[in-house]
Amino acid sequence: MLSKNQDKKSNYFQYVPPAFITILLLIGQLSFGMLDSYGNLVASVVTSMIAELLLSRFILGVWRKNLASAYITGISVGILIRAPMIWPYIITALLAIMSKYVLRYKGRHIWNPSNFGVSWMLFMAPLDVAGLSIQWGSNFLGLAVIWILGLLIVYRAKRLFVTLTYVVSYIFFAYLRSLIVGDTFLAEVSPLTGPMYQLFIFFMITDPVTSVSTRKGRISVAFLVAAVECVLRLDSFIYAPFYALFLVGPVAKFMDLRKNTSVPRVALP
């Protein structure tokens, strides 16, 4: 059972992130029309929510009332992948939600759902799916609003240190890479100014459900993600942050759960 304090936090995370990701979507769409198609977004959101609803009933035997996290997953998928057809949006959302119910340890899912779905599709289905990396605009105002809002929200959610650890680590490794490969520091920092990273640092890496239990642990994980990403970048992986989190996040969570037997089980994924 959750404590009152935890319950409060949990509620907080249930409603603020959906509102924020919706704002992010609106700013992106209204300022430079970031979506290729509303249909694709609707498909991924609807798939996520229906899958969550049905799987919860089917596997756990209860109708899940709060679909906020499924909503975030759906929107993340709708924004983060690019495909000319609608089916990749449906499949990615489906894989993301299913991963919550299948890939579990001690009653907890260990992958961030959208990170799992997006990473799998980007790596395994490159003929059908691409990422957002080079496809968003460079509107500075929109960017600033998203960063300010995002930082405020992770601050209120007490996850600012995770975001900052990652950003500082990224910048450090960007400098290191620029020395190694000889490209300018700005070229290495460039991806951080893009939209893929806004979603990544405000939603995926700070995801409370798949984070480890201690502050120190979370800082370590954020640093490790940036470090693994740096290695992947040196090997020219365009979607390095997703893959880094895909690799580091579950291992850290697994170790955390294994070590921390007192971590309370939650009823729903």
Binding site: V181, D183, T184, L186, S190, T193, S236, F237
Partner: peptide
């Protein structure tokens, strides 16, 4: 050897970065 990674790296960035040829990897 593919330039796609380098291309994606710089084109994902803000206009001050992408707009200047000197920021593009060799």
């Amino acid at each position: 050897r593919s330039y796609w990674y380098d291309y994606a790296k710089v084109t994902s960035g803000n206009k001050e970065i992408i707009g200047d040829a000197k920021n593009w990897p060799d």
